[in-house]
Every structure is written in C-alpha cells, then in structure tokens.
Design a protein around this nucleic acid. Sequence first.
DNA 1: ATTAAATAGTACTAAACTAGTCCACAATAA
DNA 2: TTATTGTGGACTAGTTTAGTACTATTTAAT
Lengths: 149, 149
Amino acid sequence: MLKLSKLTDYATVILSHMAKDYLGMYASQEVSERTGIAQPTVSKILKILVKAKILTSVRGAKGGYLLASAPENITVAMVINALEGPIALTECSLSHKNCDHVRDCDIQGNWGVINQKILTMLESVTLADMLEPIKPANEIRISASSFFR
Amino acid sequence: MLKLSKLTDYATVILSHMAKDYLGMYASQEVSERTGIAQPTVSKILKILVKAKILTSVRGAKGGYLLASAPENITVAMVINALEGPIALTECSLSHKNCDHVRDCDIQGNWGVINQKILTMLESVTLADMLEPIKPANEIRISASSFFR
DNA sequence: ATTAAATAGTACTAAACTAGTCCACAATAA
DNA sequence: TTATTGTGGACTAGTTTAGTACTATTTAAT
C-alpha cells in the first residue's frame, strides 16, 4: 500500500496544530485534547519529535513543547524520517551491500533514482505548506486519479 | 521507513528479467533459477501479477508466463499497485470518510496532493526505464543525499 | 522544603501484517 | 496416460505497529 504509519500521520496533525501559533508552548495534555489523539500516544510522538530536533521541550510545571524552527523550515521529509527512519523504498536504496541472493538485479540504481525523486519532493513540502488550503487545481488532479481505484 | 515490501521488490526484479526478451515465455522454475528467488515465492508473485493483468499465463506442460504488454507500457505504479494495493500515504488519501477522532485536521487535502505527485511519478517510470543503465548525473544526486543518513 | 505539573526513558502487550511454504487441483503437450 | 506447469487457498513463524504503563527527573508555585 506504500503507506505511512499512523504515528507519522498523527505527527503531521500534531505539528500542524502547533504550527498555527508556532511560538507558543503546548503541553501534551492540551495537544491531546485539541487533536483527539489519546494522550499517551501524543506523548510518545512528541518525545520522538524532540529527539529528532523538530521540537524542543521544557520540563517541569508550566513546561511543554514548541517548534524548534519556523514551519517554513520543517519539511514533511523530516517528519517521516523522525518517525519511520530513512526514506528508502528498497533495501538497495539505502545500502547496496545486501543483495546476495538476487543475481541478475540490474535495477537497484534505478530504484535509487526513483527514491531520490520522492525524497526531493518530500523535502520540498513544509509544515507551512501543509497548513495552506489546497489549490483547486490540485483538488481536480486528485479526483482524476482513477487508475488506483 | 516508507518502504516497499520485499515481494514488490522481487516483482520488479522478476519483471525486469522477463522484459529482456519480452515476447518469450518463462516458467516459474526458470525465473527462480535465474533470479535466485525461491521457487514458491516466485510462483506466488507471478500469480499475483497475472491477476493484475501485468502478465498472462499459459497452463500445462511447456506453459509459463509472459508479459501482457510491452515493457514501455508497464509502469512501476502498476507493479506496486498489484502487490500492495492502492498507493495511499495516509488513510485520508484513499477515503476522507474515516477521520472521526481527529478533529482539527486541516491537512488531509494536502496529503492528497503529495500522494498524487508520487503517484504521477511512479506512473511515469516504466519497466523499460528500469532496464536502462542509470545516468551518471543521477548517480551523483543519489550519493549527495546525505540528509537521510 | 514540599507539592503539583510536566517531560524522559523504557518496557510491555495485543493485534496486524509479511514472507515464505505447502498442498490438492486443473490444464496441456507429448 | 504421464509428466509438466499454472491455480487457488490455507497455513505458520516472524516481525512490525499501535497503544499503554510505569518510574524517574525537572521545575514552578506555595
């Protein structure tokens, strides 16, 4: 299905909530209430985002989380990378070492090219972009995608 | 990790093998030997590809599998779709119905746009492209991807 | 100092998914 | 008729994911 994990999906929801007032501080409790995502899950995601330096945290009472940089500087690729690790469609895109048993594989390089294109695309979309209402033109292109039922 | 399943990876290896002589017929046994992928696994993948109309099959002795169309007309998107189902990064890209518990989700539409871009890209790469040696220019761009360690 | 509020880190469980295998059945060439 | 090859479905072991729980640490407020 080539899909993102639920946690990554949640992370973008959480971050776009926080990006609305990106200088403000948010407690995990509040984020949970505002997004409808269970508190322990929100907490887990926030911790991961701190470790990835996408958020910074303040401990103690009145503590919370805030964006480590402006929404324009946080890319979708960064978020995916934080929650799922490196973006690599195939093992080969990451390292060319482990192809023991597949003998006539002429195609790893090309997977690498495809992978790189996706990466570039995901790096070009920022949190700020995610907040903007979608363009009508794009909306039309979406519904035109009938190939994948 | 945003990765394809192993089976999808195998499928592209198998198909690119078959694409070298795309009018020829290939028994699963032979494909297994030539690719180094275990026979039952090859067999499973070939069956799936037939169901997706990417291959056609001939039963009985001297039977086998052949490409249902020229390598130029078989896209990477078709192969992924066959093995993993619809390409949809988030649930929302597929259907906007199930977002019950996430209240302030302003971003599904934008996921749809991203998804569509990836889809368009994957639809533009054919089996024929996968067989061609990669361009040196692309090779350089791959190794330049240091962001995702 | 004490308490309450908040994050940090880690471990755990249940459910879902994936890879891989196997077997009984159907079709066809020789 | 027999050997060869695909068809369809079921099954298992292993891995991954989502979600939860618990303890420790930090800090503001009193």
